[in-house]
Amino acid sequence: MKECNEGYLFALFNSTSHVLAAEKILKNRGIPYKLIPVPRTLSSDCGICIRFCREDRQTVESLLSERIEDFRIDTG
């Protein structure tokens, strides 16, 4: 994963299948990301989240919104 100059953000989902769907979207668009366990400081129904670069926030948010109903982005 490339270095994120501005740090990371976390996309949290309600189910593992949403995580996988979101991953597919980001992968197809070549956006750097990483699946990680949800940081303990955050809470979620699902234990796995997607970490991405803060500078990609807008792209990630709009891409995910097209396909996934329920997710949130957290600053961790």
Partner: peptide, 13 residues
């Protein structure tokens, strides 16, 4: 599919 995902997360952790 779940098992593969869990293993990835395990290795990352």
């Amino acid at each position: 599919e779940l098992g593969r995902l869990l293993l990835r997360i395990f290795i990352h952790t």
